[in-house]
Simulated scan of single mutants.
Amino acid sequence: MLARLLLGLMLALGGPAVSGCARSAEPATAPTPTAATQFGGTDLAWIEINIAMDEQLLPLLGLVPSRSGSAGVQAVASQVQAVTTAELTELRALHDQAGLPSANPHEGMPMPGMVTPDDVAKAQSLTGKEFDAFVVKAIEAHVEQSQNLAESEDKSGVEPQTRTLALQVLRTRAEVMSTINSIS
């Protein structure tokens, strides 16, 4: 468990630069005999980190319809909410398939791109252009970190479904960045 947590931190903070280290890291305790043969340490950490990041992003996105003054920001938030919700379904299925514990060691962990409860509280105090700028900045940080993590999973992951989802994340994040750039 500690090895997986440390691997997750390395992935979250180092992105692709630590992918060589991630390849050899394995969890201290194997999930289940079947899962241990399919999922490597990078796969397991990537699943957990992305579940935490995506779950913590959703409350911020939920504020957009009532606080944003921009049709463009609302469109970006809607796009991100749709891909995030779809990814969470797949991530949770992979989580269960891998036999990961129900408690996520990355939940609530401050890391690049992670929306914190303090971020949501701050956003709740903003409206209009201030809110829009804050939300777009948070979405951009989330997207950039998601891309870094997905690149690490693509390079160092071993489980095919997880790597496929990482490639999907790279595609959807590029589309989101294109949408953001079109409203800037």
Rank of each mutant, 00 (worst) to 15 (best):
F131Q: 04
E48S: 14
T127Q: 06
V136M: 10
I51V: 14
M111E: 10
S156V: 03
D54A: 13
A71S: 12
L13T: 01
S125D: 09
V18K: 00
A52T: 01
R171N: 09
M177D: 06
E26G: 13
G99M: 02
L57N: 02
V135K: 06
R163C: 02
M53E: 02
V169P: 04
L7Q: 03
L91F: 08
Q97H: 14
A28M: 14
A133R: 10
P31S: 04
I51L: 12
Q81C: 11
P105H: 07
S24V: 14
E175W: 12
P110E: 09
T172N: 05
F39P: 01
T32K: 01
L100S: 01
D54T: 13
N181L: 07
T179Y: 08
S66V: 08
A36F: 06
A103R: 14
E26A: 08
S19I: 00
R23A: 11
D43W: 02
Q161A: 15
W46H: 03
P117Q: 15
V64Q: 02
E144G: 09
F39V: 03
E153T: 15
G41S: 14
M111G: 03
S102D: 11
H106N: 11
G72H: 04
T85P: 01
N148G: 12
L126A: 05
R92Y: 07
C21M: 13
G41E: 04
T162R: 08
N104I: 05
